[in-house]
Amino acid sequence: MTRMSLNCPMPQMNYDIITLGHGSGGLLTNRLLDQMIFDLFSNPILDERHDGAVIQANGPIAFSTDSFVVSPIFFPGGNIGDLAVNGTVNDVAMCGAIPQYISLSFIIEEGLKMTEFWEILLSIKHTCDAAGVQVVTGDTKVVDKGKGDKIFINTTGIGAMHPKANIHIQNVQSGDKIIVSGHVASHGMAIMSVREGLSFETEIESDTAYLNHTIKTLLDEFGTDIHLLRDPTRGGVSTVLTEIAKVRSLGVEIIENNIPILKQVNAACELLGLDPLYVANEGLFVAIVSNDQAESFLHRLRQLEFGEHAAMIGEVVSDHPGQVLLKSAIGGRRVLNMLVGDQLPRIC
């Protein structure tokens, strides 16, 4: 994915930067909303211009919220805008739901360039369209220079549960197979590569992506054979697996050699002494699938959007309950634990 260009012309604004007045609720706020947001995201619910959105819901719904504070706000493979949409869309999808609507809240530090804000808005729009979700409510606040860091975004997503979904950690059984949907550790290392003091010869791109269409197809076809779905963001794959092992009092065994990772990402991890299994992902999911269906699930996933590099990395076992064991590349074993503290701060 390349950084979006400003091919959609920015509305004529009187200011080059966001000022405190743009968050005052007065004239400037209205102008900002009218000219930059309402037009771009126009849909019948948003066009009502209420403080909240009125939506139809039948049956169970999934509901998730997330705040995005990534630094820098533009990074290889994406920006804070598409990250904020993908992150919440994926959280709703991981519940076994089909995300439909999102809210969009900005906390902007005064001084943010209008052109940067517009670029973020465009990529939010682009990602919402691609993921098939609508922005139906939102908010904009502006804080003094130095009291924020350019822009923070909160998104909340809502979606109806897929009728065939039965995603519960309690459904995880001994014998289930563990499948990851693609290369691990790309997002965290992409952010790391643009932090001060580091530069790599090859560019590493974030994997930020909406996974809802892929998840929906898999739920259509595999239904209750999918026991658990998780997106391993902060804390990485390791943290997801550790949680499963602890909560279910089952063991997890994974094979280091089966874990898909891009060559340049692996090299960067080696160089910086980071374990890729603890590095964040933003367009990846871990699926725990019944033993019977695991092979066909993997085969199907590899044909779907963002799933071509999927791999089966291990299984759930009854031995060593509560522990995740990794069979190392050379045939040794080690225990994986949850991450203590942050390996890399502010990556999403």
Binding site: H320, G322, Q323, V335, N337
Partner: peptide, 13 residues
């Protein structure tokens, strides 16, 4: 040692 070793058997848990 804390992070990487200490494989427990079913019995010890």
């Amino acid at each position: 040692y804390y992070h990487f070793s200490a494989i427990t058997s079913s019995e010890s848990i």
